[in-house]
């Protein structure tokens, strides 16, 4: 399955906080132009995985290769400079900065600065709401606007691949649809995606392939072509007694 053409290749990745391991040897890949989902309950290591890939926390063992090169020893800013961009969950961003300031600042690496103008136009076109509120401070934004800005910030980093952590957390169905459209548009420009989500419908509408994460390991890989249905995943995942937990 794996080859050097993959955007991201992760082999036996282990990481954790303090004494406890959270990731017990993760293996996965994201192909060029591929949209891949990560699905699983809270607390099973999805966010830790993204944090480890972007080196916000240090891996304890294993390999991370981006565009064919090992990046597991690189500092976070070097990883961003190479174009692997992580949009974290519930990002507070920079509370006292205005939207435009934040977007301009986010083109921080030299490569991103070179593309700043084009990327800025693209972000404002993709999220017209940000353009309307360009002088507003981040701390006054609504949940949806903040999420849009987070993704906008990611795009300003000139990504060659995006990792999105629960972009729909706490959003209304209408906003979720809007975001799904925007994310689909981004990926149609040839940017591979690794998408962490809890909303199964949202994830199925966006990805080509999906991993199920269970206690810090990949428990199953699902090809979308196999047309697995929603309930089936829930049953597979939580056992058929899942409904009883309410």
């Amino acid at each position: 399955m794996s080859n050097n053409q993959n955007a991201l290749q992760i082999v036996d990745l282990r990481a954790g906080y303090d004494a406890s391991d959270v990731l017990h040897g993760m293996n996965l890949y994201v192909g060029a132009n591929e949209r891949v989902g990560l699905f699983g309950p809270n607390g099973h290591g999805k966010t830790t995985l993204l944090n480890t890939i972007s080196h916000v926390i240090k891996p304890r063992a294993g390999r991370v290769c981006f565009m064919g090169e090992a990046i597991d020893g690189l500092a976070p800013q070097k990883i961003v400079a190479r174009g692997l961009v992580h949009v974290p969950q519930a990002n507070r961003l920079f509370p006292d900065m205005q939207i435009m300031e934040t977007l301009e600042l986010s083109a921080f690496t030299p490569r991103a600065r070179a593309e700043m103008k084009a990327n800025l136009d693209y972000v404002l076109e993709l999220f017209p709401r940000l353009a309307e509120r360009r002088r507003q401070q981040c701390k006054t934004l609504s949940g949806g606007e903040r999420q849009m800005l987070s993704i906008g910030v990611g795009l300003m980093c000139a990504p060659r691949m995006l990792m999105l952590d629960e972009p729909t957390l706490g959003l209304s169905p209408k906003l979720k649809d809007e975001l799904a459209e925007a994310i689909a548009e981004i990926s149609s420009r040839g940017i591979p995606l690794l998408l962490v989500e809890q909303d199964i419908a949202f994830i199925l509408s966006l990805v080509d392939r999906m991993y199920l994460v269970d206690h810090g390991e990949i428990s199953r890989e699902i090809n979308r072509s196999a047309e697995v249905d929603h309930q089936e995943i829930m049953d597979m995942y939580f056992g058929s007694g899942a409904h009883d937990h309410g």
């Binding site: 906080y17 959270v22 099973h44 830790t48 916000v56 519930a90 990002n91």
Partner: peptide
């Protein structure tokens, strides 16, 4: 004790 390891947490127990 480690503090604020990441802006986002996975509620890792």
């Amino acid at each position: 004790r480690k503090r604020r390891i990441a802006g986002s947490t996975d509620h890792a127990e």
